[in-house]
């Protein structure tokens, strides 16, 4: 879907992006991560031509992005940034309708789409449609930002630190939301963040950047188990790599379905990291597991956490 080959960008004589090679296939959720100044935001903005690249080629849907009219290109890509990006003088409805209006959708269709998106993001349409951004909480604003990016059913969703300004609880809720939307819609999503936990939690592919180059790319598991250098090892968190590995897998993957024990159960959708925490606080070595409907699903053994990762 998106192909970078030897793409470079120079700002004031300094290479912000240096001969970047990267392929993001259709339907993937790719996370660009790095310290500030690593070129991750520039890389994202080159995709919708907010920043024009200087050298190499950058293709979208098989065609050089330069062959598209910038506005046409951008309307095919949803774009979301930190919550300040909502237009403060427009209501929630007008904000979400921005791109459909630019594309001259008929009014009833726009209205239906807004309703659909508000419901998708768990905002009661009747209540929130007419509100102004400053009347919403930070988390709600960000939900509207995501809804606006999705409005015209774009081929790609570009997100620049979308959850950067949120508190940890709201952030976790929205990450869960994004995972759900990705699973539901199968859209290609490119997300920029500096938070390694967000990257490990969301990304199918993680692209770690430093000084305009890719240091390592791969699945979260690859980054944690086979860091390419000390830099990567430091970045993913040297001392708690084990904890982070546990966070990649779900309780359901290790449950022994033929056993049953008593006690307070844990949900099968929880991560193994949460399970570890439960073992330690409850001082037990077995936990009963329940599925989403709350029915008993088996038992998780403490020793099964040690089972080698693929």
């Amino acid at each position: 879907m998106i192909e970078f080959s030897r793409v470079s960008k120079v700002f004031d004589g300094r290479k912000a992006v240096d001969e970047l090679d990267l392929v993001i296939p259709q339907g993937e959720l790719a996370v660009l991560i790095g310290t500030s100044g690593s070129g991750k935001s520039t890389t994202l903005k080159m995709i919708n031509r907010l920043v024009e690249y200087d050298a190499g080629t950058l293709r979208f849907a098989g065609e050089d992005v330069r062959h598209f009219h910038p506005e046409t290109l951008r309307r095919r890509m949803g774009y979301a940034i930190q919550s300040i990006g909502l237009f403060p003088h427009w209501t929630v409805e007008q904000n979400i309708a921005t791109v459909p209006q630019l594309l001259h959708w008929p009014k009833p269709r726009i209205r239906d789409r807004v309703t659909e998106l508000l419901e998708l993001l768990h905002l009661e349409p009747g209540q929130y449609r007419g509100r102004f951004p400053h009347q919403l909480s930070g988390g709600q604003q960000q939900r509207v930002g995501v809804a606006r990016a999705l409005a015209a059913d774009p081929d790609v969703l570009l997100m620049d630190e979308p959850f950067g300004a949120l508190d940890p609880v709201t952030r976790a809720a929205l990450q869960e939301e994004l995972r759900r939307i990705h699973a539901l819609s199968g859209k290609t999503i490119v997300l920029v963040t500096h938070d390694i936990d967000e990257a490990l939690g969301l990304g199918q592919r993680i692209v770690l950047m430093e000084q305009g180059r890719i240091v390592q790319q791969g699945s979260p598991l690859e980054l944690l188990t086979h860091p390419a250098s000390d830099f990567v090892r430091d970045f993913v968190g040297r001392s708690d790599i084990g904890i982070k590995l546990l966070a990649l897998d779900r309780v359901a993957d290790r449950t022994r379905h033929d056993e049953a024990v008593g006690g307070e159960p844990i949900a099968s959708s929880s991560t193994l990291r949460e399970a570890l925490s439960a073992f330690i606080t409850r001082k037990v070595d077995r936990l009963p597991v329940v599925d989403e409907q709350g029915r008993p699903a088996g038992t998780l053994h403490f020793c099964d956490l040690l089972e080698a990762q693929a």
Partner: peptide, 8 residues
């Protein structure tokens, strides 16, 4: 920037 990014 976001106005530009949305395709205005």
């Amino acid at each position: 920037e976001v106005a530009q990014g949305l395709g205005l």
